[in-house]
Write a protein that binds this DNA or RNA. Structure first.
Ligand code: MN
Ligand code: MN
Ligand code: ZN
Ligand code: ZN
Lengths: 133, 133
DNA sequence: ATTATTATTGCAACTTGGTTGCATTATGAC
DNA sequence: GTCATAATGCAACCAAGTTGCAATAATAAT
């Protein structure tokens, strides 16, 4: 965490652990309830999460119901220069999975000549996740 | 509008006109300010928009700052059975364009064998739109 | 055309997810 | 250990969207 320019605090250690243990992106509420005893102010959690995002440790995903989910960056993104990955939204459990899915080559082609200059892209899939069928 | 099972009202006519005239998806606020004199209750506008969505006349797109934009369905979707289209988000003007971009074949392949059952998908591009460069 | 049925509208109050200001406390450089 | 600076907790706040309900307008029935 030092290497990201962040002071090591109690709150950050707890939240980082929780994010590391999760297969899916987590909401503010998800994280709060996973904190034993709930002993963490909600504002502190908001600020902890955005410190992770600013430091480049995590990223956030907007959901359909106007909330943010947070997840650590994928290992692929750490090592190589992969910026964009896909997300899978489960219709049943509402979970959002980060998928190390390379979509680069898909991007430019279709609207190449239309005056849109593409810099990045997100591919979002919906359906049923492995643990829901 | 009758054909969609909706009563023809003043509010709906106004909002439908505004949506038809726009190249990009519009926010609640965008639409309110486009209404001459502002003479439309904010709740009525919310309900007008969701009546359009429920009736199958329009659709909504979630933005990064957790609000909804609304746009009429593309003509392609009306005629054929095209369900999903792509969106282009301009970094500069923040506008969101609906793109008649067929992404069907891209969907299934990469995570086919992973236990995810894909039902629909959205492809979101970011960059600079034609009127911003 | 008049009336009756039913959906739509407007207003006020409310909910929810998240932010801001500020005094207190903890971290890490020295 | 001392000190500068950043993180925390608390209360108040904000903005997008929702709900309840009485008044009103659109259409169907007569
Ligand atoms: Mn992700
Ligand atoms: Mn669209
Ligand atoms: Zn699931
Ligand atoms: Zn633009």
């Amino acid at each position: 965490m030092h290497q990201y320019g962040l002071k090591v605090t109690n709150a950050r250690i707890k939240v980082l652990r929780i994010l590391m243990q999760s297969q899916v992106a987590l909401s503010h509420g998800d994280i709060l309830t996973r904190i034993h005893g709930n002993e963490l102010d909600k504002v502190t959690l908001y600020r902890t999460l955005s410190s992770f995002v600013n430091a480049g440790l995590a990223h956030k995903v907007a959901t359909e119901d106007r909330t943010w989910l947070h997840a650590l960056h994928l290992p692929e993104e750490r090592n190589e220069g992969v910026e964009d990955h896909a997300h899978f939204v489960c219709d049943t459990c509402e979970c959002i999975y980060c998928l190390p899915l390379v979509t680069e080559d898909m991007a430019a082609i279709p609207i190449k000549e239309s005056g849109f200059q593409i810099k990045s892209h997100e591919y979002r899939l919906r359906g049923t996740c492995p643990s829901c069928h």
